[in-house]
């Protein structure tokens, strides 16, 4: 198991290197000189940037300087905000996105497993139909529409009860987080519900559940010990990509709900063509996602004895 984790970490580092390289060359193929645009680059900033990256040197030299900085965990200085470290920007804004993302992932995974199991157990009966209808909505309605609609609903709800329990926008308390996290997690939850349902249905009809019933095991125990654990396995395997989808899907939710997360900052940086912030955020997100996938795989290993023992 430890060997496996080590191997995955080494693979992860190579993957992050690939992401960093792809980011570097994608940004360097942007037409025009980043510093010659009609933008307020003070001589001070220009000097700083040139010292940091050797912008007048050949691309390959810049690339190695960039990699060297990265390996020390240094993402550089912002192009548009004088002498502001990209690291500081990430440190300030990422926790907000992370909290939102964690809430959404928890919501999506718990809801997906619960609803998926329910629909399978109540197959072709009313709870199944109701949940599957909502799932189809969750899959086919874009997140920005959901975000807008839920915001509209919040406005009406708050004015109806003359309260502000669930604020329409902003950030700070758990009350600010609930609705955005729900909106963010809903699409993934719908997807996980479908996956859990089909996996559960397969297992309900499996030979080993029949064996358990032939042993006279009570239904509740069959559900807990034989069905749930096996049905969750496929859900866990897609949790890595699901986390990726949720973290990057956070952009829209952060924009609509005016949440000061890294996603919204990234969109602003792109609009202002703040190269270092764009690169730093991309590599940071990439590394984060690679790490999350490894974590999910390791967790999977602990659940599935086949992987754990090999």
């Amino acid at each position: 198991m430890w060997g496996y984790i080590f191997k995955r970490l080494v693979q992860g580092i190579i993957t992050v290197w690939f992401i960093a390289t792809a980011t570097f060359f994608a940004m360097h193929s942007v037409p025009g000189d980043p510093l010659l645009n009609d933008r307020a680059v003070t001589p001070q900033m220009r000097a700083n940037l040139e010292a940091k990256y050797g912008l007048d040197k050949p691309v390959l030299t810049q690339y190695f300087v960039y990699l060297g900085n990265l390996s020390r965990g240094d993402f550089g200085i912002s192009f548009t905000q004088e002498n502001r470290q990209v690291n500081d920007i990430i440190r300030q804004h990422f926790p907000v996105s992370a909290i939102l993302g964690v809430l959404a992932v928890v919501f999506a995974a718990a809801g997906g497993v619960l609803f998926g199991a329910l629909t399978a157990l109540y197959r072709n009966r009313l709870p199944d139909y109701i949940i599957m209808f909502l799932v189809i909505l969750g899959i086919s309605v874009p997140s920005f529409v959901l975000a807008a609609l839920s915001q509209l609903a919040l406005v009406n709800l708050n004015s109806l009860f003359a309260t502000n329990i669930l604020p329409v926008a902003g950030w700070g308390t758990i009350r600010h987080m609930l609705v955005p996290a729900l909106v963010l997690g809903l699409g993934t939850m719908a997807y996980l519900t479908r996956l859990m349902r089909s996996s559960m249905l397969e297992i309900i009809n499996s030979d080993y559940v029949r064996t358990a019933r032939a042993k006279g095991v009570p239904p509740a125990r069959i559900f807990a010990r034989h069905q749930l654990r096996n049905a969750i396995l496929p859900v866990v395997t897609v949790l890595g990509p699901a986390i990726a989808a949720i973290t990057t899907g956070g952009f829209v939710v952060e924009l609509v709900f005016a949440i000061p997360g890294l996603g919204r900052y990234f969109v602003e940086a792109v609009q202002q063509l703040d190269y270092t912030v764009i690169m730093g955020t991309t590599v940071f997100y990439g590394a984060f996602l690679v790490f999350m996938v490894i974590v999910v795989d390791v967790i999977y290993g602990f659940i599935d004895p086949k992987v754990r023992l090999e």
Partner: peptide
Amino acid sequence: NIIDGKDIRGSEIGMIFQDPMTSLNPTM
């Protein structure tokens, strides 16, 4: 399958199946 409130499956009648590869829970 219940006598005196107890499930007779597994206690009074045992059963084995054709395909042992799929008839056992893979994660237990």
